[in-house]
Amino acid sequence: MPGTNGGASNGTSVTFLEAIKQAMFEEMERDPAVVLIGEDVGVYGGAFKTSEGLLERFGWERVIDTPISESAIIGAACGMSYCGLRPICEMQFIDFIVCAFNQITNFVAKGHYLWNAPAPMVVRGPSGGGVHGGPFHSANPEMYFVHTPGLKVIYPSTPYDAKGLLKAAVRDNNPVLFFEHKFLYRRIKGEVPAGDYTVPIGKAVVRREGIHLTIISYAAMMHTSLEAAEALAQEGIEAEVIDLRTLLPLDEETILNSVKKTNKCLVVHEDTKTGGIAGEIAAILCEKAFGDLDGPLMRVTSLDTPVPYAPSLEEYFLPNAKKIFSAAKELARY
């Protein structure tokens, strides 16, 4: 993958999942104010084993198994963060984050604005489809939260970014939601450097340079977009591919710079179409780069339905390289 590690490294190649585990391990090692709280995170090491070994190393006080009470997890983490701790909350599947929607959007997100109370906490968990998890284990709920001032929302696509951004999230003084696309957990490997590093929150990255159009994506669809870009190159269409990495705050500068160069923009996301980040990007381009556009903003997204269960239905529901390829080709020819 081009640009995966964003720079030189002599580290090792690890899975996406391992990168997340390393980030938590290293942050807990670095700072005793960091604790992990969630369902089955201790003894079992998390439903996906992202916290395996943390209990043995850091003990019961820092790796806290909870009842099945998402509002209590978020609420308690918020209370801890008011006392100078930096809790990491695990949602067993990110789908369950909406059980704590009120705590996150009303309590956690508004505190700094209203009464000057920072809540340095992270909420993370496995998200996304493509693994036949069905309608309640495949969600991409990022946009509920991108619409909430006071939160930061991260959705990485590579092991390097996952580790560096999770570390940055733990050190950030604001509540950060960190979405981990479970399709990537064991399928994607990448280099991470040996030492400590962070990736800045709020900065997108150009994964592939191109001149004919810009494809903007993130998380699992970033890989699918790169695949489509390779196929497009076979036909002489050079797509620039941007990985957003952070959805809130959105890196407008990187988006605008690219579109001003290519004059065309296609947004690809696994989230459903209506109300997805593509709409926000379209608005930004209309406001700030209207004169630069030589074609309509196009979207390749999931359908506006719940995530269906049967593989044939889910495949139809999700974007794929073919759909991206044809949309991009149409746009390039526009």
Binding site: V35, E61, I64, S69, S71, A72, I73, I74, G75, A76, A77, C78, G79, M80, S81, Y82, C83, G84, L85, P87, N102, Q103, N106, F107, K110, G111, L114, W115, A117
Partner: peptide
């Protein structure tokens, strides 16, 4: 700790405050 209007929300938050105090 400031309350918010949503009734009951303080209960887990203050539980977290209590746990943090004990931890520290």
């Amino acid at each position: 700790v400031s309350p918010i209007s949503m009734l009951g929300d303080l209960i887990p938050v203050m539980t977290g405050v209590a746990m943090a105090g004990r931890y520290l």
